[in-house]
Design a protein around this nucleic acid. Sequence first.
RNA 1: AGGGGUAUAGCCAAGCGGUAAGGCAGCUGGUUUUGAUCCAGUCAUUCAGAGGUUCAAAUCCUCUUACCCCUGCCA
Length: 556
Amino acid sequence: MSEAEKRPTNFIRQIIDADLESGKHSSVQTRFPPEPNGFLHIGHAKAICLNFGIAQDYQGLCNLRFDDTNPEKEDIDYVHSIEADVKWLGFEWSGETRYSSQYFDKLHGFAVELIEKGLAYVCFLTGDEAREYRGSLKAPGKNSPHRDSSVEDNLALFDKMKNGEFKEGECVLRAKIDMTSSFMCLRDPILYRVRFAHHHQTGDKWCIYPMYDFTHCLSDAIEGVTHSLCTLEFQDNRRLYDWVLENVSIDVIPHQYESSRLNLEYTVMSKRKLHTLVEEKLVNGWDDPRMPTIAAFRRRGYTPGSLREFTKRIGVTKMDNTVEMGVLEACIREDLNDNAPRAMAVLDPIKLVIENYPAGQVEELNVKNHPSDDEQGTRIVPFAAELYIEAEDFREEANKKYKRLVLDKAVRLRGAYVVTATRCDKDSEGNVTTVYGNYNADTLGKNPEDGTKPKGVIHWVAAEQSIDAEIRLYDRLFNVPNPAAEEDFHRVMNEGSLITISHAKVEPSLVNAKPEQAFQFERQGYFCRDNKDSQGDKLVFNRTVGLRDTWAKMDN
RNA sequence: AGGGGUAUAGCCAAGCGGUAAGGCAGCUGGUUUUGAUCCAGUCAUUCAGAGGUUCAAAUCCUCUUACCCCUGCCA
């Protein structure tokens, strides 16, 4: 793992360093607490790397805990996808997978304790009434008429709630804190609500479910979490987090620290918007390679190490930020440049006929799999008189800057010979269909004797021996850097975010490509075999990212 | 009648009273059988703004400005 060299420094690690040094803690316990109501995205990858990374570096432990307090929105399928994503990213959680729902009995006990202390009450205000009583950001709220019910009554009422004697929405359990607090979350927040819903873990055992603010802090404490890391929007909630822990009989006191969420240019990160993309079939599922989900990055060809490196490079702070795609792309290019074997694929083929090459002859050329890493070996690439080359790699005439095949000029065929174009055929629309030329037989693995070294190198495949493949070219999902700021993101979707090339020609060695196996198609970019639609002998490759292309920039 | 946060280059981000790290992007050259990679060089006299303290301020103080979050029986 290349990211092992130097540890990142950030304000959270500084806090941990201080806590360890002061003796406040002797070990570190973190947790990654997703709600199983959707697929994990790259923002979660940041949280995963933060929590698991800290546990690793401090010889601590990190739990995987599903925050499953809202059965109506959650699903066991999401539990499985999330577990798979965390593992794939390369992390191992401490012990078994945990669920907040495991603690429902304990949580219920703490709720009863609060009632007994006169710190919680059952409230029968309707939603509308409660909103009115809550006041506003600038005006204090007022006390619920049920706020001063006796402890005995509240105990009995809460028991009836638990026993299903109240309808959904009829009443809730609330903490008795302060209806005039400037922290809205301290204006007698709801602790429990009634929901007659089947839960994926607890089945039909409960008809009351605890709210996040009550559950999270207690779950952290129960698990002995020392540093509870979350995102900035929970800063106010920290007051409630601390209130609950202070008012309940529990000895471990975790502390919550907040850092900013990740925003990435040209995509959306909110679960709601991602759900919309999937539900409206604007993409082909959660793992559509255009999505910012972990499953999608995986399918697209991003490696776990590249995602880990990315989270390391972007850092951890409290500043709102929007990271450029270029950072992510640099990470995967760096990984794949070193590790992906090279291959040749022609996406937009035209024929190149070498007229002085013996008809019918096929040479098996040995070509290096990596230009500078000999350990990666060689492969056999067939060469024959009829080849395919990229349409854009030939021009009848061109200026000196164009370093590819031009009439009467020479070019190097990658890993093979130097050829010179002599003439070409065109179709009725003027498009070149076939280029004719001659090759220099004495240029295999060496430059021409006459010192005329060609400027350019182009890729190719042997026409007869090549195989067909479908190649999917992906681009950003949106045309604007911040689609989330748009009134309606549908209007800024990139129509060209997926281009499917159904009959690309690829070199025969690629039949052996395994799902998710990465290659660099020379001069094109990094590709991997699709892990879903590429079954049997059907070959589908996804473009992970293109090569850095300074020529394209000059061309503009 | 508000409260909680954040401001350092195009984008991230170190810095924690001693004279602005690093990465990405960009720009210049060099190598190259990938217009890739790689290599060398370059890229903030200034830290949201204005005052103040100090021999010395991005760091401390005061005021101002901008942006984000908070009024779900979501998390």
